[in-house]
Amino acid sequence: MLGLTAMTIIRLRSLFAVVMLFSIYSLLTASLFMVLDAVDVAFTEAAVGAGISTMLMLGTLMITGYREKRPAHSPILPLIVVVLTGAVLVWGTLDMPHFGSPDQPVHQHVAPRYIDDSPKEVGIPNMVTSVLASYRGYDTMGETIVVFAALIGVLSLIGIKKYTNKEPGRTEKPPESILQVAAKLLIPFILLFALYVQFHGDFGPGGGFQAGVIFAAGIILYALTFSLKDAMHLAPPKVVKVIAAFGVLLYGGTGIVSMLKGGTFLNYSVLAHDPIHGQHYGILLVELGVGLTVASVMMLIFYAFVSRGEAD
C-alpha cells in the first residue's frame, strides 16, 4: 500500500491531492511502526507527519500555487541514478543480519546496556524517554535547536505579516456555526490531551515533541475555524516567540545547572540528592523545554505561512 500511495503521489499533478495522499502515507507508515511495536515513533509520525506537516504543506501551497509544473528535462537520467542507488542499498542490506535476529550489532552493543541499566539509573518506566532525554541528551538538544533554527529561517525569510484590515471587496463567507461550536468544545480537550502527553511521557508513549505538536494543532484548529486574527489575539506572535526561545534556554539551562552542581553537561543525576530523583527532574525539565519550543515553533511557522498567503 505504501508503494502504491507513493506512485500515485508522483503521478498526480494536482498538489492538493498530493498533500492529502501524503497524510494517508504517514498514517500508513505509523500503522507500520505500530505493527513493529515502536509506539513512540508511531506517535510522532501520527502527530507530526499526518498533522502538522499536512498543514504546513497546505500553507506553502497557498503561497506558491497548487499546480505542479511539467518538468523541463527528461526523467530518464535521474531514474537510472535512483534505481542504481536503490540497488546498491538493497545489496548492502543483504550483508546485514536477518531482521529481528538477536545477534545484530545494535543488540550486542548499547541496547542491552540501556535495557539493563535504565530502570536502575533513570528509573522511569518508558525506556524510550530515558534514552531520548537522558542518555542521548545531546542529540535531543541538537534536534530542538534545529527546530528553533528552522523557525529563525522562516521568520527571517518570510516573516509574519501584520494583520491588516481586509479589503472591502472580499466575498462574505457563509456562517459556519456548527464548525465553530464543535471546535470550541474540542479545543480544550486537545490542549488538555497535549499536557497529558507531555507529562505522561515518562510512563507511556509520548513526550515533548508529540505534546508540542498536539498543542500547536489545537491552536491551529482555532485559527482555521475562526480566523487567523483571533488566533493571533489568543496567542500573540510576540509572546510565542519568547516562549520558543525560552524552551531552548530551559534545555540548555538544565545542562548548565547540572554542570554548576558538579556533574557533566546534561548529567541530571546531580540535580537532586538522590540520582534517580535528579534524573526525573532533569527529564521533566528537558521535555518541557522541548515541548515549549516545538509548540511555539509550529504555531509561528503556521502564522508566517498563512498570514503571507492571506496578504497576497
Binding site: S23, L27, A30, F43, A46, A47, A50, G51, T54, M55, L58, L179, A183, L186, I190, F193, V197, Q210, I214, A217, I220, L221, L224, T225
Partner: peptide
C-alpha cells in the same frame, strides 16, 4: 491522537 489529528487535518 489520530482521532484528533484526523479531524484537524480534514478541516485544514
Amino acid at each position: 491522537v489520530y482521532a484528533l489529528i484526523n479531524f484537524i487535518g480534514v478541516i485544514a
